[in-house]
Design a protein around this nucleic acid. Structure first.
Ligand SMILES: NC(=O)c1ccc[n+]([C@@H]2O[C@H](COP(=O)([O-])OP(=O)(O)OC[C@H]3O[C@@H](n4cnc5c(N)ncnc54)[C@H](O)[C@@H]3O)[C@@H](O)[C@H]2O)c1
Ligand SMILES: NC(=O)c1ccc[n+]([C@@H]2O[C@H](COP(=O)([O-])OP(=O)(O)OC[C@H]3O[C@@H](n4cnc5c(N)ncnc54)[C@H](O)[C@@H]3O)[C@@H](O)[C@H]2O)c1
Lengths: 215, 215
DNA sequence: CCTTTTTTGTTATTAAAATAACATATTTTT
DNA sequence: AAAAATATGTTATTTTAATAACAAAAAAGG
């Protein structure tokens, strides 16, 4: 059975919203609140919770403290989530120095690059030569990598990662790499997102396909 | 009528694949080829094309040259797509200097920041003070912005952009901003994607919700 | 020139996801 | 303490998306 990632995406959003509400002093939350915040129906919120056995009070909603704790366990946030960054150019370095990761329990263990000029083995988050990646992954038990190398290198790196204990990759190269049975790839394609927005805008202006009636 | 962005996402992928095939010397393509490359069924490929009146030959598939040209018009790639980057920190600068944009006809017109230390009005892609943004947008007719400011500033910037001719935004701040009727927001939440992958991996290892039977 | 093969374009079917509905439990009010 | 109000948890319904099926057109083969 496969739990589809749209549900998890929403769980992550519910948790985020609750964390913020908690910061404002709230203690309880209702499915209507979360629905409004995330942009779905209240019944979907309750159904999502129901799937994971998360329950509230028939009146009085959900205790956030408790719910957040349970969500964190479901989402694996009770352990440190170590990642590595492959390709330490402009994008890779932005990610290595990103201060949003520690806040959510994600830890960048190291960066890797093939260019000797960018290596820095002594830094708090070291940038190591790509030749050392296999040993590092094995030794530290890394399971997730972020790929920020030029597009032509992306697929071959994926192929070699498949021979390690890496099980999931975020790919920033503008090519849609495909997940396989036990190797998950999540593509983040910035130019595609921008192109998509331009289409939506253009379309909204009334330029539909040739013979399309508006409704 | 709203054309859902999943279809557009696929059109963009079909086009990418065809561009690559063309580079390899191919002239024609079949729905089966595109289906394999993108990971959908051949009938979906044909249906997607059909929505936009893109036709092929009952035998012999589609002429790529012609199809790519038509797709480009549908996707608005016949005009330059100008964007601005708001927030020129680590992520914003990576985007400003990203060499993948020109290749697909996206042009970064300028960056904007509130910190005087990062401004650079003379650069090829100038980094201007945020106070100049409204005039710039109006003058250059910018419709799309990329938001790379810290999370607490994101919503207020969106609110002020809504008073300009900006119609769409890519938001990198880790908060789910919501689209409205004629203002599209596409969130790219890197930490969320990583957390999602960690969940999938963890789940694949057999840690389902309490009482789940496998199938 | 007729038959066979192939691949489109479209319709029918299936599958999946989201919403709506409602009975049930719990609190509040009178 | 009974009645009213409220919000959950689950089932039913609707909506949306994807696949499968197939008739018709075009090319290829004999
Ligand atoms: N810069 C951006 O804002 C941006 C935005 C979206 C997507 N991307 C994508 O991210 C990737 C990186 O972009 P960038 O702008 O940082 O490029 P970049 O050229 O600045 O950095 C690429 C880095 O990868 C390293 N590299 C190349 N081949 C390698 C290999 N086989 N093993 C290890 N390291 C290798 C290079 O030495 C370089 O340091 C590209 O695929 C790009 O399309 C970048
Ligand atoms: N660095 C990354 O790799 C990364 C990854 C994912 C998401 N993000 C997100 O992108 C955003 C930027 O991240 P960063 O790492 O580049 O941060 P950063 O601190 O390096 O850069 C933020 C920039 O925004 C500017 N700024 C702040 N308020 C502003 C305002 N009101 N108007 C104009 N400019 C303003 C600051 O002066 C600074 O230059 C954050 O929301 C972050 O969560 C960053």
């Amino acid at each position: 059975m496969k739990t589809q990632s749209a549900v998890i995406e929403r769980l992550l959003k519910y948790r985020d919203v609750m964390q913020k509400m908690k910061g404002l002093g709230f203690v309880r939350v209702f499915s209507d609140n979360l629905a409004d915040a995330v942009g779905v129906s209240p019944s979907l919120v309750r159904k999502d919770f129901s799937i994971f056995g998360l329950t509230g009070n028939k009146r009085g909603g959900y205790q956030m403290e408790e719910l957040i704790a349970k969500l964190n366990i479901i989402l694996g946030k009770d352990r440190k989530q170590k990642i590595i960054i492959i390709g330490c150019g402009k994008m890779g370095r932005a990610l290595i120095n990103y201060n949003g990761f520690p806040r959510v329990g994600i830890r960048v263990a190291a960066g890797f690059d093939s260019d000797p000029a960018v290596l820095d083995e002594a830094a708090p988050i070291p940038i190591l030569h790509i030749s050392k990646i296999k040993d590092f992954i094995t030794e530290k038990g890394i399971q997730v990598a972020v790929l920020t190398v030029p597009e032509p290198s992306a697929q071959s790196i994926i192929d070699s990662l498949k021979k390690t204990c890496i099980k999931g990759v975020i790919n920033f190269a503008p090519v849609s790499l495909r997940s396989s049975e036990n190797f998950i790839i999540q593509n983040i394609n910035v130019e595609q997102e921008i192109e998509n927005i331009f289409y939506q805008i253009h379309f909204a202006d009334g330029a539909a396909s040739s013979g399309e009636e508006s409704k």
